[in-house]
């Protein structure tokens, strides 16, 4: 995007009126901007430290009206303290019981891939950043229902209960099979893609169920009335992420960048208004560095990129 010379401000988000951030205009400004970011002196604050601090803030909010310095206990406050322990103990008991019935959620850290095995012997391989939840009491006993956001490859053993995966307003039902689901609520239209590598599944989204067999794929997103007709897909494309291969077929740039952020645990800023929806096809058979992928993307799209403190920045 080209700027007017007299206006050094560029809208950071075109649709918002007040989100104007500084974006360096001149190339030598750009370099200094990036360098300064890399050499930031900054204290690392551990999660435990944040939680401690939050705990202190909580205790002050619950039992004092004014922000006092050292939180000295007033005479009347002592009884309150005991009451507090009682309440805490009660809460713990109730909470413990409650926990047994609440779904467990597993979230895979960025940059990692995890495999989990369920009680019934089925497994799920989870891509970076994916979260999956299920009920720890009932799953594998009276039902086999999972809820996920992200991307996972399932190997389901046959069982009397239907194995169901709920993902962003879609449901995939199976009895015994191998398949991949990709469903990120951060992707445009929260698109869900189901690809079967062995056996068959029923893919339900909106009204019409679609039956999928091995080697076929169907997609659904918020803009579609019904899932797409089953289409054959190259076997290599199914869950290439499990071998850390990167496969992008006509995907919006923003989807690709999100994928890279999760796979490499980095942050990528896209400072090119309108570029989010441009599509791109790319295939990497072997693990590569994030920089080399960005190198290719920026070359094809005639953009530039620079390293930042926690990742990269793409600009024109």
């Amino acid at each position: 995007m080209k700027n007017k010379k007299d206006n050094p401000l560029r809208p950071y988000r075109p649709e918002s009126e007040n989100g104007v951030r500084f974006i360096p205009e001149k190339e030598d400004h750009q370099e200094i901007w990036n360098l300064a970011g890399m050499y930031r002196e900054r204290a690392q604050i551990e999660t435990t430290e944040i939680e401690d601090a939050l705990g202190r803030v909580h205790s002050r909010l619950d039992f004092t009206d004014t922000p006092g310095k050292n939180g000295k206990a007033a005479p009347g406050e002592k009884t309150w303290l005991y009451a507090r322990y009682l309440v805490a103990a009660l809460a713990l008991i109730v909470f413990g019981g409650y926990l047994l019935f609440v779904p467990v959620t597993i979230t895979v850290p960025h940059g990692e891939i995890a495999t989990i095995e369920f009680r019934d012997g089925s497994t799920a391989e989870l891509n970076s950043g994916t979260s999956l939840s299920y009920n720890r009491i009932f799953f594998g006993r009276t039902e086999r229902n999972l809820t996920m956001n992200g991307e996972a490859f399932f190997r389901v053993v046959p069982g009397s209960e239907t194995f169901r995966v709920h993902a962003n307003n879609t449901t995939t039902e199976v009895t015994g099979t191998e398949f991949n689901i990709r469903s990120w609520n951060s992707d445009p239209g929260s698109e869900t893609t189901v690809t079967v590598s062995n056996g068959g599944v029923i893919f339900l989204a909106s009204s019409e169920p679609v039956a999928l067999t091995a080697g076929n794929q169907s997609r659904w997103n918020l803009e579609l009335d019904a899932p797409t007709e089953p289409a054959a897909i190259e076997h290599d494309d199914i869950a290439g992420w499990r071998e850390r291969r990167l496969i992008f077929r006509d995907q919006p740039l923003i989807t690709i960048l999100r994928e890279l952020e999760r796979a490499y645990d980095i942050r990528i800023e896209l400072d090119v208004p309108g570029a989010e929806t441009e599509t791109l096809t790319a295939y990497y058979a072997r693990p590569v560095t994030a920089a080399s992928v960005l190198e290719d993307i920026t070359l094809v799209k005639d953009l530039r990129y620079a390293q930042t403190a926690d990742g990269y920045r793409i600009f024109k």
Binding site: L9, Y12, N18, G19, V20, R21, F22, W33, A36, G37, R40, R42
Partner: peptide
């Protein structure tokens, strides 16, 4: 601007 990510306003 650089480190705290605040916008101009």
């Amino acid at each position: 601007s650089r480190f705290e990510g605040l916008d101009h306003n």
